[in-house]
Amino acid sequence: MCNVCGCGHGETRIEGELPAEGAHEHPHEHLHDHTHAHECLHRHADGTLHSHPPAGDHLHYGLGPAHAHAPGLSQARMVSIEQDILARNNAYAAANRRWLTEHGVLALNLVSSPGSGKTTLLVKTIKALRGRVPLAVIEGDQQTNLDAERIRTTGVRAIQVNTGKGCHLDAHMVGHALERLDLAENGLLLIENVGNLVCPAGFDLGEAHKVVILSVTEGEDKPLKYPEMFHAADLMLINKIDLLPYVAFDVERCIEYAQRVNPRLEILRVSATTDEGIEDWIDWIEARLARARAAREDTVDALKRRIAELEARLAAKG
């Protein structure tokens, strides 16, 4: 745990750095406000304090000792709480979203099963947009930095987050990754979530859209089997459509199932190998990039107006 802000689950690892060893120097800046509620909660079993690893491109959340929670001491009363269990994650997600909006950055959270072709699609997407749009990638996997390395070969900044035993990225991890990414304004942030069609659905990262990728080598009934994810997504990419002649995958039925779960879901058919449909996907992204920029302009303009108002009032008083 970071003993200044109290953040971190005690299991962080950043690529190329030793975990939980060596004090780091403050001040460091956070995109999000830490509630400090968890400061006293996550004490290491061995009594050591976790500290953030220094700057790097690899976050690891699976190496530390198990959390140990100190017992409390001891007339019964009811206390109203009325809070969402995910309140903590949602607060971090809101902070990430605020930062992204203020900087005009479009963040997409790419979710799928393992093996759907997410990383290949990502590389294709980067190649299509590179030079036109500032890009950065957050790669989530349980272990290894293989995917981030694959992305870096395209020349684009990538940060690997290892979730350790965790099955999803959470907003807190993404917040810390954002701090390290040094994202350009009006850019695109692609977040490749852990390959898992279940858990990432419930964890808001602060992204503008979840994009679910389903490949034709999987079953067309996945939208019914894993409905939460297809419900949480705004766009479904049916990937590997070049393989359709060789597999028994009924595209129309897949779309029907997906729209049962989510009638608003948009759908594109793509092949990251043959480039079929990639242009439509890039168009989809560019339309949303334009919206993100416009939203930022609104914010900047609104602030400028506010400053002008305050200056006018100040001038009137003086």
Binding site: Q75, R77, V79, S80, I81, E82, Q83, D84
Partner: peptide, 11 residues
């Protein structure tokens, strides 16, 4: 979609 802590009986 709720996952809420409603209240607690405490002492």
């Amino acid at each position: 979609f709720e996952m809420r802590v409603k209240d607690l009986l405490v002492e």
